[in-house]
């Protein structure tokens, strides 16, 4: 899948393999961070990863979602992930 991420220094595109028929946005960001771009900033420091803390919001194709709860089918062609507001700290992280 093509994953376009709006980083602070512009839109970046990454190729992410379908690890499963359905991945969460957090799974995708974890993959990009661990394997493709360790400079990526996304909410992860006190993360429940179960949809409980409600702190991992991003925009997925223009819609606000919780990264750890929103699913993306493995065969989705291209997706776009952006920060949830314009109060950007860095990349996908916005002021809390």
């Amino acid at each position: 899948m093509n994953v376009r991420i709006k980083k602070s220094d512009g839109l970046k595109e990454y190729q992410v393999p379908a690890l499963s028929p359905s991945m969460t946005v957090m799974d995708i960001l974890d993959y990009v961070y661990a394997n493709l771009d360790r400079s990526l900033a996304y909410y992860r420091h006190s993360a429940c990863n179960q949809g409980i803390c409600a702190r991992c919001a991003v925009k997925l194709d223009g819609k606000t979602v919780l990264a750890c709860a929103a699913q993306v089918p493995g065969d989705a062609g291209t997706i776009v992930i952006e920060p949830v507001s314009d109060k950007v700290v860095r990349d996908l992280v916005v002021a809390s």
Binding site: Y33, R38, S39, L40, A41, Y42, R44, H45, V89, R90, D91, V93
Partner: peptide, 14 residues
């Protein structure tokens, strides 16, 4: 060592 020297929300630093 880190890939990115930024102090702002630097997950690698944490």
């Amino acid at each position: 060592a880190l890939s990115c020297p930024s102090r702002k929300y630097n997950l690698e630093w944490m």
